[in-house]
Write a protein that binds this DNA or RNA. Sequence first.
DNA 1: ATATGTGCAAAGGGTTTGCAGATAT
DNA 2: ATATCTGCAAACCCTTTGCACATAT
Lengths: 142, 142
Amino acid sequence: MNETDEIVRLLRSRGLKVTPQRIAILRLLKNGGHFNIEQVLNELRKIEPNISISTVYNALNTFVELGILRSFEVDGKTWYEIRKKPHINVVCEDTGQIIDVNVDVSTIERKIRSMGIMIRDLTIVVRGNCISPSLSGGNSQK
Amino acid sequence: MNETDEIVRLLRSRGLKVTPQRIAILRLLKNGGHFNIEQVLNELRKIEPNISISTVYNALNTFVELGILRSFEVDGKTWYEIRKKPHINVVCEDTGQIIDVNVDVSTIERKIRSMGIMIRDLTIVVRGNCISPSLSGGNSQK
DNA sequence: ATATGTGCAAAGGGTTTGCAGATAT
DNA sequence: ATATCTGCAAACCCTTTGCACATAT
C-alpha cells in the first residue's frame, strides 16, 4: 500500500472527503517534522500552486480536531506536527529550528491523572540555544 | 519590609523607573496565579482605572525580558505568571482555569543539556478536563 | 533637566469567517 | 443530486508601534 493510499484511507475513515489539498498536506506532515503556516504554504504551492491559506488552515484545524495532527504555539505562531507519543519540542532561539527530543513522560502523566484530570494533550516546549554562543562566536540571539 | 517596598527594590535593581502601574502589575502577579491580558486589565483597573492596555503589555514584556515573569500561549492568548521553578501548567478545557502542578523536571533538563542545548525556558502545558465528565453530568467540552 | 514611561489611536500580523463557485460522493 | 470543500476577500482578535504628554530620577 503506497503513501497516498494510506492517506486516502485515513481521510475516508474519518468521514472526510478526499481532496488533493488534504492529501498534499498530510503527505507533507505524516513523516515527521514541524511546520508553521508559512512553511506549509511554501511547500504545498510547489504541488498545488493555487492552494489558499484558508484551505490550509481549515484542513490543519480539522486534522488537529480529529487528533491526526497536534499543534502548539511559539511567539504568536502555531506549529503543526503529526500526533505521536509525547516528546519535548526544542525551539532553538538562534536558528528558529524545532527538534524533537524523546523523554519518558509517564511520571508527569501519572501525577496529572492522579489528580482526576483527563489528559487531552501534553505539550513540552524548551526554548534554548542549540548553537553554543562560545562556538558560534557572537551574539546571535534575536 | 512590606510588599510594595520589595517591589520598589526589585524595579530599582533592574534599572526600571518605579511607577504606580508597574507596582500594581507586580503586586497582582507576585503571589502566584496565572493571568491573561484581559484579567490583568480587569484587576488593575480597580486600582488604576485609566491604565492603558499598551502600558500593561509594555510592562509585562519588560518583566518577561528581565526574567521576573514568564509567559506561555494557549489558544492564541498569552498567559503570564511569576517566574519560579519549572512546573506543569494544567489548562482545564471545561473551566478555562489554569493550575500549577509541581513535578521534577531534572531528567528532562539533563537530557536537553546533554545535547549541548542551553535552556532558556521550559514550558509544560497539559490540556485536560479537571471536572470528570461523568460527574459534571454532560458534555461541557467546548 | 532629561531619560523613561504612559495613554491613546492606529497599524500589524496571524487566524477565522462568509460566501459563491467547484468538487467529491 | 447534494453535502462538503476550496479560494478569495473581508473581518477578527490579540499585540505592537508611533507619538505627544506626563512622570520619575
